[in-house]
Write a protein that binds this DNA or RNA. Structure first.
Lengths: 232, 232
DNA sequence: CGGCGGCTTGATCCCTTTCAACTGTTGTGG
DNA sequence: CCACAACAGTTGAAAGGGATCAAGCCGCCG
């Protein structure tokens, strides 16, 4: 956990205590599930390596990705309302997580109050991300959605300590389209336009940000920055 | 606070203690602000009477409503990540809220651990609502969006102890359209179709649910229920 | 009564979806 | 090691749904 977001704001001895209890680090292969919608919650999870998607499935089988989780981020807090998960979570690549069992969490929170606060902070952050997604889906063209997604995604990668200007997108076009409320063909066309404008280069999975300012412009920013600048 | 959701799960003496501290009940007129995006957070709020909208404003002045808050619900948790609000909140009608000052909250949470858990629960719930909104905006037609909104909205009214089959919509068509990622003309047309199908009757602000099953069908439900059945 | 704002209705246009064909990459088995 | 299958992504053409523009309606308040 040491290098992750969760312990931020804890005392060193508290981190040690946390470390002793959180021994559950699990390796997860691509496409493997951590839990399903409706499951009784066992734990919340911190991403160490890799990335995950949260999604909901309708009765008619249509699914909708509602969240993407990068290293240092927490997920599973959807179950804190009533102990039942309301999304399913699946790895998008070979990944590694820390599980923080809910049983332990309750006890720990009493001994280490700042831990509860930290979980609260991460949940609030996820809420804001979801609000931003609402805004993204609200009234934006296909190209804006894709460009804005890339802006935010690279910012989040940077926050997670990952390469942000040239990297391997673990997210398939299909998943990306789904997340952005578009068809995969539309996403493909948006990528083409962004390539033609010199904003990016992209092969199957390797993505390179060539001109971040042009990308921001395509995302509909007047000027200025993406507002992902949470200070740690 | 007594009749609200927040104290659920607290001991009677804890509720009394909470009651003593939460004296800040404020009356809010329609369109009045509680806080703005960027403000340093003073408190989180519980709706007692009325309703509120959360929204974000882009640099170019375009705004997007991302949340709606009914009696018994909490809002303002967007600021728990870094003490700064990331949405603005405005009353949609004459309303009444309890403010729970963050300064007090920290101290209280230590004395009453279940209070922290309760705030956590309500935040998780808001997160799920936002995920549901993502799903709503993702791949649904205009009519489905409006019908589904009405299903969820009436369910939430019921949970809040309000009349759910015939009531006054505090939300303007403009706001509703914005929330649902549509144009106001499109919402108007969706209403017309739902009226013609006998699902609802609607004048300027009075709304009546005439046939909930037909409404659910228009919302794209195969069968079954809206999944707002959080148990208190 | 008259005018304003919120809402409705109509006509046209445009962007995204849809359907379909094609390309290219990955990986597997002969 | 190559052939070929299978899959992910790209590109094109046509269709449809919502946006946009414009006009009209109606309830409300001065």
């Amino acid at each position: 956990m040491r290098e992750l977001c969760l312990p931020a704001g804890l005392q060193p001895d508290e981190v040690s205590e946390l470390d002793r209890i959180i021994q559950k680090r699990q390796q997860v292969r691509s496409d493997e599930y951590l839990f399903h919608e409706g499951d009784v919650a066992q734990a919340i999870y911190a991403v160490r390596i890799g990335s995950f998607k949260s999604y909901r499935v309708r009765e008619d089988g249509v699914w909708q990705i509602v969240g993407i989780h990068l290293p240092g981020e927490l997920f599973g807090m959807d179950a804190l309302a009533d102990q039942h998960h309301r999304v399913s979570v699946q790895a998008m690549e070979t990944s590694n997580v820390c599980a923080l069992p809910l049983a332990d969490l309750a006890a720990l929170t009493i001994r280490i109050p700042s831990l509860g606060k930290q979980v609260m902070r991460m949940t609030s952050r996820e809420l804001n991300t979801s609000y931003e997604n609402h805004e993204l889906l609200g009234r934006r063209s296909a190209q804006e959605r894709v460009a804005l997604f890339l802006c935010r995604y690279t910012d989040r990668r940077r926050n997670s300590g990952l390469k942000a200007d040239s990297f391997d997108m673990a997210i398939s076009r299909q998943d990306l389209a789904n997340y952005l409320g578009l068809q995969l063909e539309t996403v493909s066309r948006a990528f083409r336009q962004l390539k033609d404008n010199g904003c990016i280069t992209a092969s199957r999975s390797l993505l390179e940000i060539k001109n971040i300012d042009a990308l921001r412009e395509a995302a509909g920013f007047c000027h200025g920055k993406t507002d992902y600048a949470y200070h740690h």
